[in-house]
Amino acid sequence: NQASVVANTLIPINTALTLVMMRSEVVTPVGIPAEDIPRLVSMTVNRAVPLGTTLMPDMVKGYA
């Protein structure tokens, strides 16, 4: 099973992502692959992402 990116904290809308905000976890449904974490750093989220939420491609500006 592939690990996905999961919010390690509440990420407010329009926040630039940092490494400490994200962790990898095997979850269903599958979200952004964990190997993309380095690429996500400094990208911003377009909605509030609660703790434990899987990051989906449409949640990160410029990812999809």
Rank of each mutant, 00 (worst) to 15 (best):
P57K: 09
M56N: 08
A48W: 09
R39L: 11
N14H: 15
S24G: 09
L40A: 00
D58Y: 09
P12V: 14
A16M: 12
R23I: 10
D36K: 06
T15C: 05
N46D: 12
M21F: 04
V27L: 06
I37Y: 03
A3E: 14
G62N: 12
V30K: 05
I32G: 00
L17T: 00
P29W: 03
T18L: 08
L55C: 01
V27F: 02
N46E: 15
I13L: 12
T9M: 13
Y63Q: 05
T18Q: 09
A48N: 10
V41E: 05
A48P: 15
P38E: 08
L51W: 11
L10H: 14
T15P: 02
R47V: 07
V6E: 01
P50C: 07
T9D: 10
N14Q: 10
T44W: 11
A3L: 10
I13M: 08
P33G: 06
A16V: 14
L17C: 03
V60H: 02
M56Y: 10
Q2M: 12
T28A: 11
N8P: 02
T15R: 05
Q2E: 15
N14C: 14
V45R: 00
S42N: 14
P38Y: 06
M22P: 00
N1V: 15
V20Y: 14
M56Q: 15
L51Y: 15
A7I: 04
D58G: 08
L40G: 00
S24K: 13
L17N: 01
M56H: 07
I37F: 03
V5T: 10
S24D: 08
L55G: 01
A3S: 13
N8K: 12
G52R: 05
I11L: 07
P50L: 11
V45L: 11
L51V: 12
L19G: 05
S24W: 06
I37E: 01
V30S: 13
T28G: 05
I37T: 15
M59W: 09
V30P: 11
T54A: 06
L19N: 13
T18S: 09
L10F: 13
E35L: 09
V5R: 00
M43N: 05
M21S: 12
D58L: 08
V20K: 11
M22A: 01
V60M: 04
Y63H: 04
V30D: 15
G31H: 01
P38H: 10
I37K: 14
S42C: 15
N8R: 09
S42Q: 11
R23G: 07
V49L: 12
S4H: 00
G52H: 14
V27G: 03
T44Q: 15
P50R: 07
P57G: 07
P33Y: 15
N46K: 09
M22N: 00
T9C: 04
P33C: 06
G62K: 07
V26T: 11
D58C: 15
E25N: 08
Q2I: 15
S24H: 12
K61V: 11
L17Q: 00
S4G: 06
V5Q: 01
M21T: 04
V20C: 06
N1E: 15
L10T: 13
A3I: 08
V45P: 02
A3F: 10
D36N: 12
T28E: 15
P33N: 09
D58K: 09
V6P: 01
V26R: 03
I32D: 01
A7L: 03
K61M: 13
A3H: 14
M59E: 03
A34P: 07
P38W: 09
L40T: 00
L19C: 14
V60W: 01
M59D: 13
L10W: 12
M43S: 04
D36Y: 07
M43F: 11
G31E: 01
E35I: 13
T18V: 08
S42E: 08
L40K: 00
T53W: 08
A16W: 06
E35A: 07
I32P: 00
N1W: 08
R23V: 12
R23D: 04
T44M: 11
V60P: 00
L10K: 12
P57R: 09
R47I: 11
R39W: 08
V5M: 02
R47L: 12
T54C: 04
D58V: 07
L10C: 15
V49Q: 02
T44R: 08
P33M: 10
N1M: 15
V30C: 05
G31N: 01
I11C: 02
V5F: 02
T9P: 02
M59Q: 05
V49P: 02
N8T: 09
T54K: 04
L19W: 10
I37H: 02
G52N: 14
P57F: 05
S4N: 02
V5K: 02
S42L: 12
A16F: 13
T44S: 13
S24M: 07
I37S: 04
Q2K: 05
I11F: 02
E35N: 12
T15F: 08
T54S: 04
S4D: 01
L10N: 08
L51N: 13
T15S: 06
S42D: 09
V30R: 03
M43Q: 07
V5Y: 01
G31A: 04
P33V: 08
A3R: 04
D36E: 12
A7C: 04
M59G: 03
P29T: 04
M59A: 09
M43R: 06
N8H: 08
P38V: 12
P12Q: 08
V30N: 13
A48D: 15
A34T: 07
Y63F: 11
L10M: 14
M43K: 12
L51K: 09
T28V: 14
A48Y: 12
E25D: 13
T15M: 09
Y63D: 03
T53I: 12
M56I: 08
K61I: 15
D36R: 10
P29C: 06
M22C: 03
L19T: 10
A34H: 06
V20A: 10
V6C: 05
D58I: 12
V41N: 03
A16Y: 13
P38F: 12
P57C: 05
V20L: 14
V60F: 06
I13H: 12
M22L: 11
V45D: 01
G62D: 13
A7P: 02
D58R: 06
N14E: 09
L19D: 10
V60K: 01
L17I: 13
V6Q: 04
L40W: 02
G52K: 04
R23W: 03
R23Q: 05
M59S: 04
S24E: 15
L51F: 10
G62H: 08
L51A: 11
I32W: 02
T53R: 13
K61R: 14
D58M: 07
Q2T: 12
P29A: 04
R39T: 10
M21A: 05
M22W: 02
N8I: 05
Q2L: 14
M22V: 06
N1T: 15
A64Q: 15
E35Q: 06
T9Y: 10
V30G: 07
A7R: 02
M21R: 03
L40F: 00
V5P: 01
L55R: 00
V27A: 09
V41G: 01
V26M: 09
M56A: 08
G52I: 03
T28C: 15
N14R: 06
T18P: 00
A34M: 13
I13N: 14
R23A: 07
G52F: 06
V49Y: 02
R39A: 09
G31S: 02
V5E: 00
A64V: 11
T28N: 09
T53A: 12
N8L: 06
P38A: 13
S42Y: 08
A16K: 10
Q2Y: 09
V60A: 01
L51T: 13
L10G: 11
K61Q: 11
T9N: 10
A48G: 15
G62C: 14
L10A: 14
P38S: 11
T44E: 10
E35K: 06
P12G: 07
V41R: 05
V41Q: 08
M59Y: 14
D58F: 08
G62F: 06
M59C: 04
L17F: 02
A3G: 06
E35C: 13
V41Y: 05
R47H: 15
S42W: 07
N1F: 10
I37M: 14
A48F: 10
G62V: 04
R47N: 07
A64L: 11
P57N: 08
T18D: 10
T53E: 11
M21K: 04
V45T: 06
A48C: 06
A64H: 15
T9F: 15
L40Q: 00
P33R: 11
S42M: 13
T54I: 07
L19A: 11
E35D: 11
S24V: 13
T53M: 15
I37A: 08
V45G: 01
T54R: 03
V5S: 04
T53Q: 10
A34V: 10
A34C: 07
V26P: 09
A3K: 06
T28F: 09
S24C: 05
P33K: 06
L40R: 00
E25Y: 06
S24L: 07
V45Q: 01
P12F: 05
A48H: 14
M56V: 13
R39I: 12
N46Y: 06
T9H: 15
N1K: 04
D58W: 08
T9W: 09
T15L: 05
A34E: 09
M21N: 14
G62Q: 10
V6Y: 00
